[in-house]
Amino acid sequence: MLQAVVRAGSDAQESSVCTVGLGELWLGIETACVREVLGERDVETVPLMPSYLAGVLPNRGVMLTVLCLRSLLGMPRYEGRSSVMIVEDGSAGGPFGLLVDRIGGIVSVTDAMLEPTPSTLKEQSRQLFNGVYKLQDRLLVRIEAKQLRPESLSELQGLVAQ
């Protein structure tokens, strides 16, 4: 697993994000929304569900719904064994899982590093991306747990290729 520790340049409005990797792409999700990092896990597929629903996973006595981030972004299936991160947005829906290729580390970022999502991206990605952090060595796409709620994704369904 890659440990990405990056120093922030400015000290204004510092916050920390947890990074996850999808192929070449790095995404960051606010640390406060991350409940638990599980690492590599097998997820039980549920038949007849849209492809962005990876399946269900038992965690701390409850059955969590796990989303496939690759499928949400229209990316092809990951060949290796995927990792699971459990996120929650504080709403009544409870926590849910995110299936990603790998989980990176904690990165400190500032608002000054945030740029709006480039408009040249695919519509499907633009809907979920919430700006891009310019890190020293690469770009980090910001995503929000709130927008990933399984219940709120049904409107996106049309956009997700089956």
Binding site: P47, P58, G61
Partner: peptide, 16 residues
């Protein structure tokens, strides 16, 4: 274990 909202809505599985 009961399933969460979106999977439950499918109505084919009562739990896991």
């Amino acid at each position: 274990k009961p399933l969460s909202g979106i999977v439950r809505e499918l109505g084919l599985f009562t739990g896991a």
